[in-house]
């Protein structure tokens, strides 16, 4: 005989017991939850708060007034930057710098790791590695200070140029030099540090593969092409995707320390422009609108890169 009612009550009983179980899980783990409550409140205030604070891109903001602005103005500030020639300048500067970093400072650590991998002398290898990490630990302020000293008119680089019989160059004042300097500094700081993960991947390659290749008569170059590079390819792909996701994050603090009005033409990027119009000139809403625009492009790049990553490498950030 059929007992629909019974089945229903049975299901209800299961649901109730599951509910009870869930509740008891919460009760059992209340201490775990109590640990994480404070950080969540922190996050809501200090991370999600400013996200919500972007509302002032659509509202007129008066310093000292309400922190969410005075009145709605719609897309007025967005139209404003679309008509602002400086905006296009900083936008293209940002993309050019980001692109240079991607094609130069991204592959350099791979090559560096491959070169280190060919060293047989472990002591020398360790020495080169240790030295190459060092700039990563220097404050960006100190790094900027060193750059100014080395490239100054009395600095060693200009001394060399003068010795070779050329005219001295005031590097930090010339817009045509800024990109070279910026990328070189980035390379200098990240070459060794960026190679760590590749070196780890290199030690993971099966030694037997090389032996087999040697028996087949492959020389070192062929081994590199056919064994070493495929061996670290997964690492390269993952880091490349991460890099594309962070494409626009070119190191705003470094620009801020290295540039000056004479080099704005090539050095001024979106973030520094936001800093100047927003905090220095006090156009908070206008600066926020530009910043929001950049953040949204950044988020789209991360999501896009993550999507591609999941499709082709089974690796995703979350």
């Amino acid at each position: 005989m059929n007992h629909p009612q019974n089945r229903e009550t049975g299901e209800m009983a299961i649901a109730v017991s599951r509910n009870k179980k869930e509740r008891s899980v919460f009760i059992k783990d209340w201490q775990l939850y109590s640990l994480i409550v404070l950080p969540i409140i922190y996050l809501i205030i200090f991370k999600y708060g400013p996200m919500f604070g972007n509302i002032i891109a659509f509202r007129r903001f008066v310093p000292g007034g309400s922190i969410i602005g005075e009145e709605w103005v719609g897309f007025q500030y967005f139209q404003m930057f679309l008509n602002d020639p400086t905006f296009f300048k900083v936008f293209s500067n940002t993309f050019i710098l980001a692109f240079l970093l991607l094609v130069i400072t991204f592959p350099a650590p791979i090559i560096f790791a491959l070169l280190l991998n060919e060293l047989k002398n472990q002591l020398f290898k360790r020495f080169v590695q240790t030295a190459s990490y060092l700039p990563h630990f220097f404050s960006i302020v100190v790094v900027a200070g060193m750059v100014f000293e080395i490239l100054s008119l009395n600095g060693p680089v200009n001394a060399l140029i003068a010795n070779l019989g050329f005219d001295k160059i005031s590097f930090m004042q010339l817009p045509e030099w800024f990109r070279t300097i910026f990328v070189s500094v980035d390379l200098w700081q990240s070459l060794g540090w960026g190679a760590i993960l590749y070196l780890a991947a290199l030690t993971g390659i099966n030694e037997e593969l090389y032996e087999a290749a040697r028996i087949d008569g492959a020389n070192r170059w062929k081994q590199t092409i056919h064994i070493t590079i495929p061996g670290i390819l997964p690492t390269i792909v993952v880091l490349l995707i991460l890099n594309i996701g962070n494409f626009l994050q070119i190191g705003f603090e470094k620009v801020l320390l290295l540039y000056n009005p004479l080099t704005y033409e090539t050095a001024d990027v979106i973030a520094t422009y936001v800093y100047r119009v927003g905090l220095q000139s006090g156009s908070f809403s206008y600066g926020t609108a530009i910043g929001l625009f950049e953040s949204i492009i950044g988020l789209a790049l991360v999501l896009g890169a993550n999507y591609v990553s999941r499709r082709i490498t089974d690796n995703s950030l979350w």
């Binding site: 994480i36 969540i40 996050l43 205030i45 200090f46 991370k47 999600y48 708060g49 400013p50 996200m51 919500f52 604070g53 972007n54 002032i56 903001f61 922190i67 996701g245 973030a271 936001v274 800093y275 927003g278 905090l279 908070f284 600066g287 926020t288 910043g291 929001l292 950049e294 953040s295 950044g298 988020l299 991360v302 999501l303 950030l317 979350w318």
Partner: peptide, 21 residues
């Protein structure tokens, strides 16, 4: 919860809203 935290890595409020806060 993990997503709630990780999201802040990829999207932040930006310089000026942070400053105002």
């Amino acid at each position: 919860l993990t997503l709630f935290f990780v999201f802040t890595m990829f999207f932040n409020g930006g310089l000026i809203p942070n400053y105002v806060l």
